[in-house]
């Protein structure tokens, strides 16, 4: 054999590579086309009815006319209930799991597994559970409280996972230095670990909000459908996602306002997800500067 074998014709692009490239670019084109279609459709139909008054007006004619002010309020209240119950409980669990638990056996392992399963439970099953437990067993009825607490169960595994990651990312040297300085565990936790783990905790919070905002099925039989402005947490309240569902399925002529509501919801979620990436980048920088 000699050096001449080198100089075969062609330049590294085999026929197989041309075929593969074709397939890959076709898949990408299909995905870009589909998502472009979806987003363009939402924007082009949703922007029309959207205005300041749409956001601040009462619901009229089952949603065909008027705005979504009470819906936004109910959504906000459900979200608040959800976070106020999920965050303290979730944060404490995440601290225990990351700092104290042995995940390979015993309680640590059991809790970790049960959170994995919880994260996979279909949202309609949460709805069944929320209805049976919060609405009927605890007697909270169809209410913002029932809905918010049901969502809290759904959001827990997501929030805990991120907060745990955040805590694990804190360098071991921080813990050792704190111990060497004679800090108590409580002081180490509140002055060193939690501030350092803030990015992960915030990302978990934001992702949890995103999940809760997007949820529909778990709310149908817990927080209910009522479009009135809620006066207490025991009133039923309709979330934005349920509003979209109801307008498109049960209200003939509700399509225009359904588009506008969908656009509001998607815009909120895009803002929230962007905040999550921004927060982790931003706080990541702060953390590195410490």
């Amino acid at each position: 054999m000699n050096g001449a074998n080198l100089y075969a014709s062609g330049f590294g692009r085999t026929r197989g590579d041309v075929l593969l490239s074709g397939a890959v670019y076709a898949a990408v084109a299909a995905v870009v086309g589909l998502s472009g279609w979806l987003l363009y459709d939402l924007l082009s139909h949703g922007l029309g009815p959207l205005s300041m008054t749409f956001l601040t007006a009462e619901v009229e004619a089952s949603g065909r006319a008027g705005g979504i002010a009470p819906i936004l309020l109910s959504t906000l209240l459900i979200l608040t209930v959800c976070l106020l119950s999920a965050v303290p409980l979730g944060l404490a669990s995440a601290i225990w799991l990351s700092e104290y638990a042995d995940l390979s056996r015993g309680l640590g392992r059991a809790v970790h597994h049960s959170l994995d399963v919880l994260a996979g439970v279909p949202s309609i099953v949460f709805g069944l559970f929320g209805n049976a437990f919060f609405c009927v067993y605890l007697g909270l009825g169809f209410s913002i409280l029932s809905g918010g607490l049901t969502l809290a169960c759904m959001v827990l595994p997501i929030f805990i996972r991120e907060a745990e990651e955040g805590l694990r990312a804190v360098p071991q040297s921080y813990r050792l230095s704190a111990a060497a300085l004679g800090f108590s565990q409580t002081r180490t936790l509140f002055s060193i670990l939690l501030p350092a783990a803030l990015p992960g905790i915030l990302v978990g919070l934001v992702l949890g909000v995103g999940r809760a905002l997007a949820e529909t099925a778990a709310l149908i039989f817990t927080s209910g459908y009522v479009t009135r402005t809620p006066e207490s947490l025991l009133d039923s309240g309709r979330s934005l996602s349920i509003h979209i569902y109801d307008l498109s399925m049960n209200v003939p002529g509700g399509e225009a306002n359904a588009y506008a509501s969908a656009l509001v919801l998607v815009a909120l979620l895009v803002v929230i997800n962007t905040t999550a990436s921004w927060a982790s980048a931003r706080f990541g920088l702060v953390r590195r500067a410490i």
């Binding site: 979806l38 459709d41 939402l42 995103g210 905002l213 997007a214 949820e215 529909t216 099925a217 996602s241 349920i242 979209i244 569902y245 498109s248 359904a258 588009y259 969908a262 919801l265 998607v266 979620l269 895009v270 929230i272 997800n273």
Partner: peptide, 11 residues
């Protein structure tokens, strides 16, 4: 990934 399922259903 951020688009909620009810919006997919609606579309």
């Amino acid at each position: 990934a951020g688009v909620p399922s009810v919006v997919y259903g609606f579309w």
